[in-house]
Design a protein around this nucleic acid. Structure first.
Length: 489
RNA sequence: GGUCUCAUGGCCGAGCGGUUAGGCUGGGCUCUGCAAAAGCUCCCACAGCGGUUCGAUUCCGCUUGAGACCUCCA
């Protein structure tokens, strides 16, 4: 398979030709959410970014297994709360079982991400369902001498690992710097070095999430689940590992160390990292408290939102930026995306109704080539979108009759346009499932017919009365050459 | 403090050593009973200062500014 696809690899810091390890199979692992809160706009970015990767790879003919985890085992929290487990803390506050919280927010996440029209991953493993695999990995690390046990916890020995391997090669750090700059946290005195990380953590008596192990009751370490589950479902070596840039260090760096420490192999061929969504130039994040949840965006119920934004508007907004760039949130930017998307989707409908001519005044070969080049250049969706808008102007001219297209070219263009917009970028036309109904449709047809009669009789007062009353009722009338259109707002 | 990014027109956001990004806004026009909508079209930006070059927004250096990671975080 020769696809010309190039992917920016964080490991090499440049774009590389994409060559799967076992063509035509592709294994892709993406870090999913920690389910202790509502999904916010930031979560939408990797979901959509890697959904497009998933879709495009499949479109190219690859057989892709896409694994995205659910983190439902608590990770240590920050130093403001004595290292208390994140999920556990929430449980105590709300007097719920940890798994009850996990269940609630997993469903909530699924709902939001599905609304964004992201395909479900092939496998969505839960960390809590892979405790055994994680314990086995801990044991292997111990056997290989890259981990040590202390007081019921097992830590990865970074210094020892670094003697043979390069800890920090993904994030561009060196161990001396780490030594100089890593903070001493409470309760970490068991570590030989401050930058060692837990692969198994002893559970304090009040800790609810706990499992038996050879080292006593505890829970798996912060970074282990991704290594254990990716190995289980994708093998010791696989093609793509994705996630947000904020996971680069230490999370992904530790994953590399764990894989190498366990199997002796670098598990991942291509590391991909999406950039952050910012708000007022600052990263949107849970810890900063400046996030907007997806359901708030969909409903418009948030202090900084001037209106609701549809899931497709959000998706299009995200696709209008290259995934490795930061993307700044604002109402203006979302509104711009909303309008642009509406125009683009209208173009799809226009294209479907075009009539072929005997000859063509346009050629679409270059358009096709440009679009694929954009996608092949590290999934450059904004460039792809710009070509789609260029073609939109052509489509409108075809509709006006100032350009012509033959049947063969028309069929091809319709296929391409639909493939790029729906199949690959994963947009969809939401109009069909909005507030309208069969009954309302019938009623509106009658009303509009009456208004049309009035217009034909030049009874402008009656025509305007109908339009104004409908506006008051929440329905907009848009006259066009082919009769009036209406929509509920 | 360390490491690393980025700085593009009113806003969002691509890109490249010499050629149009694209979207939104705004101007003009067409259509139209009016309004709206829609369509066509116009608007030529690249933080500052040096350097390399025939030529730099694009390469190099410095300055200024913003941000990310170094602690859970998409």
């Amino acid at each position: 398979m020769n696809t010309n696809l190039r992917i920016y690899n964080t490991l090499s810091r440049k774009k590389e030709d994409f060559k799967p390890i076992n063509e035509p199979f592709v294994g892709m692992y993406v870090c999913g959410p920690t389910v202790y809160g509502e999904a916010h706009l930031g979560h939408a970015r990797p979901a959509i970014t890697f959904d497009v990767v998933f879709r495009y790879l499949k479109y190219l003919g690859y057989n892709v297994r896409y694994v995205r985890n659910i983190t439902d085992v608590g990770h240590l929290s920050n130093d403001s709360d004595d290292g208390e487990d994140k999920i556990l803390k929430k449980a105590r506050l709300e007097r719920l079982e940890p798994m009850e919280i996990v269940q609630y927010y997993t469903i909530s996440y699924h709902k939001s991400i599905e609304a964004l029209n992201c395909l479900p991953p092939s496998i969505e493993p839960h960390a809590s369902g892979h405790i055994i695999e994680q314990q086995e990995m801990v044991q292997k690390l111990l056997n290989n001498g890259f981990a040590y046990e202390k007081n019921g916890s097992v830590y990865f020995d970074v210094e020892k690992y670094n003697q043979k391997h390069n800890y920090g090669k993904l994030s561009g750090r060196n161990i001396e710097e780490l030594f100089a700059n890593t903070r001493q946290l409470d309760g970490q005195s068991d570590k030989k070095n401050p930058f060692d990380f837990a692969v198994w953590k002893n559970a304090e008596p009040q800790h609810i999430q706990r499992w038996n192990s050879a080292w006593g009751e505890g829970f798996p370490g912060w970074h282990l689940e991704c290594s254990a589950m990716s190995t289980k479902y994708l093998g010791e070596v696989f093609d793509i590992h994705g996630g947000g840039m904020d996971l680069l260090f230490p999370h992904h760096e530790c994953e590399i160390a764990q894989s190498v420490g366990t199997t002796g192999k670098d598990a991942v061929k291509y590391w991909m990292h999406n950039n952050m969504i910012t708000i007022n130039g600052q990263k949107m994040g849970k810890s900063l408290g400046n996030f907007i949840t997806l359901s708030e965006l969909f409903s418009g119920k948030h202090a900084s939102l001037v209106q609701a934004y549809s899931p497709m508007t959000i998706r299009f907004f995200i696709l209008q930026a290259q995934y490795r760039s930061t993307l700044d949130f604002s109402n203006e930017a979302l509104q711009a995306s909303e309008k642009g998307l509406q125009r683009l989707l209208k173009g799809v409908k226009t294209l479907e109704t075009l009539k072929a001519s005997s000859n063509s005044t346009i050629v679409i070969d270059e358009f096709e080539q440009n679009c694929f080049e954009a996608l092949n250049d590290d999934f450059n969706t904004p460039i792809l979108i710009s070509y789609l808008f260029d073609m939109l102007t052509v489509i409108n001219k075809l509709a006006m009759g100032t350009e012509q297209i033959n049947q063969e070219q028309l069929t091809h263009l319709q296929k391409l346009y639909s493939d790029f917009i729906f199949e690959i970028m994963g947009l969809k036309d939401l109009e069909s499932d909005n507030k309208s109904s069969e009954t309302l449709n019938s009623v509106m047809n009658i009303v509009l017919e009456m208004r049309q009669k009035a217009k034909e009789n030049k009874d402008w007062a009656a025509a305007d009365l109908i339009r104004n009353q409908l506006t008051k009722a929440g329905i907009t009338i848009k006259d066009s050459k082919n009769g009036a259109e209406w929509e509920v707002f």
